[in-house]
């Protein structure tokens, strides 16, 4: 989806909102506010091996990252969601989560920069 090395893309929300700049900015704000909380929730759930909670958090986050164009971790989040829900391949979950977390942190930095350029 991204033509450059950028992690994030506004293609979808631009098209969704007919290039409504205010809307895109507000979406970035919500993402910046919500994502660290969601990552903490996931980290806590992983630590407590609360797989159901982890599955639900992954489900919530997958929609947000899709809308921000962060497609590189969509499949990872889906695998966390499904594995935790079904109780399978749980040994893979910590590594996958680390990848998700790291990508999200990079995406947050990138979005903060992009926001300043708006």
């Amino acid at each position: 989806m991204n033509s450059t090395n950028e992690l994030t893309s506004f293609d979808f929300i631009n098209s969704f909102s007919d290039n409504n700049k205010d809307f895109v900015l507000s979406m970035i704000d919500v993402f910046l506010e919500q994502t660290p909380n969601e990552l903490s929730n996931m980290e806590e759930a992983l630590h407590n091996e609360d797989w159901i909670k982890l599955s639900k958090s992954a489900h919530t986050l997958v929609t947000s990252v899709k809308f921000m164009g962060i497609f590189t971790i969509v499949d990872d989040l889906k695998s966390i969601e499904n594995n935790c829900k079904d109780g399978v391949n749980l040994d893979e979950v910590p590594d996958t989560f680390l990848k998700v977390k790291s990508t999200c942190i990079d995406a947050i930095e990138e979005l903060e920069l992009k926001k300043k350029l708006f």
Binding site: S17, N20, F23, V30, F31, T60, T63, S64, F67
Partner: peptide, 13 residues
């Protein structure tokens, strides 16, 4: 909708 991002999008659309 519990996801604030999607809730915002829903509100908009």
């Amino acid at each position: 909708e519990d996801d604030p991002v999607f809730a915002k999008m829903l509100q908009y659309v």
